[in-house]
Nucleic acid binder design. Structure first.
Lengths: 187, 187
DNA sequence: AACGTAGCGGACCGTCGGTCCGTTTAGCAA
DNA sequence: TTGCTAAACGGACCGACGGTCCGCTACGTT
């Protein structure tokens, strides 16, 4: 890839990131906006990313990979052998990610055409969670249960619950995880 | 409301229903399409329903109410006092509804602006499920857990799992419900 | 230095949601 | 039945947006 092309790619990604981060409604971020903010022609945008979905996916996966790297790094230290604790930590990381990347996540999930699922990151998290659930409570329905857990941190739900204190949301997710993994409610 | 207005309202609703039902991608159903299929001018459409979101919501709530009526009727016969069974039945009805109204549900859920939640039907189901969960396992996190259950039958997830046999999906949902309500896995 | 090509950018296009306003007609009253 | 009025109609019209096209630019190579 030519040097100017690489430079433009980075500029677009950074501009789009800022735009989405400061947007209330991700649909309000147009491709023209991104091009203008990046100081780049519209043609460049579309040649590099194909279409709007491509841009959003690229940006989303960039941040997802960054997050995943931090996550692996943090959990590598103290071997958590208990699968339930591992799911709790994973879901907590995912929840924080959705909160911190509200608009971008919403943009990704509202692209149309199975958008939240046709995405490298989703397969990654789903595989991990499904394996841990199978370990914790057996393989029966583990696949679907993993989908259900991930659905509980869908960005528009998190957004809908935006006025809840973070602790309440976090507690809810943890309760859900423990229940699904086979622990009984403590109450 | 004038007679012709009422007639047109029905024509639009029916035409839109057919269009969504036979569409793969709900985004492919344009307001012009609906107007043409209903034999009505575009202005009439927008005067009656405000905007696209209004039309989709009206149609969705029409079908939701029909379904809710059937559901109440069916469950009224044999008093199910067990809250867990009640949640299982409710979620099963919801799952079937999402399968049978695939495109319309996807249209509703992808309107933008917290679309799946700013909707009379959602509040109804959430309230019912949350109350039953509270009854089954205590009030702790019941509110969030109800949201989580409903998220597990989001139409795009159901769509993503379209190639699963219905029984597998149904079993997964039931497993989820029982786990969340405090039952231990049988495996 | 010169050259071929990958890359650039913005004018341009089709479509879509939504508006506007001149025309029609339902419903009522005399 | 006739006339009147306000509600309703419908489709031409508009602005915005995603996506394309093509003449121009400049990077990297020889």
């Amino acid at each position: 890839m030519r040097a100017d092309a690489a430079r433009n790619r980075e500029a677009v990604l950074q501009a789009a990131g800022l735009l989405f981060d400061s947007a209330d409604d991700p649909a309000g971020v147009s491709m023209d906006d991104v091009a203008a903010a990046a100081g780049v022609g519209k043609g460049t945008l579309f040649r590099r990313f194909g279409d709007r979905a491509g841009l959003v996916r690229a940006l989303y996966e960039l941040r997802t990979e960054r997050m995943a790297a931090e996550f692996e790094g943090a959990t590598g230290a103290d071997d958590p052998v208990d699968p339930v604790e591992a799911v709790v930590r994973t879901m907590d990381a995912l929840l924080r990610f959705k909160i911190e990347n509200r608009a971008l996540s919403r943009a990704l999930e509202s692209l149309g055409g199975g958008s939240p699922y046709t995405n490298a990151a989703y397969g990654h998290w789903h595989g991990r969670v499904a394996a841990l659930i199978a370990e914790a409570r057996g393989p029966e329905s583990a696949d679907f249960l993993a989908h259900a857990l991930l659905a509980a941190v869908r960005s528009d739900l998190v957004d809908h619950l935006a006025d809840w204190p973070d602790a309440r949301l976090k507690a809810g997710v943890e309760e859900l995880v423990r229940s699904v993994c086979g622990e009984r409610p403590t109450g």
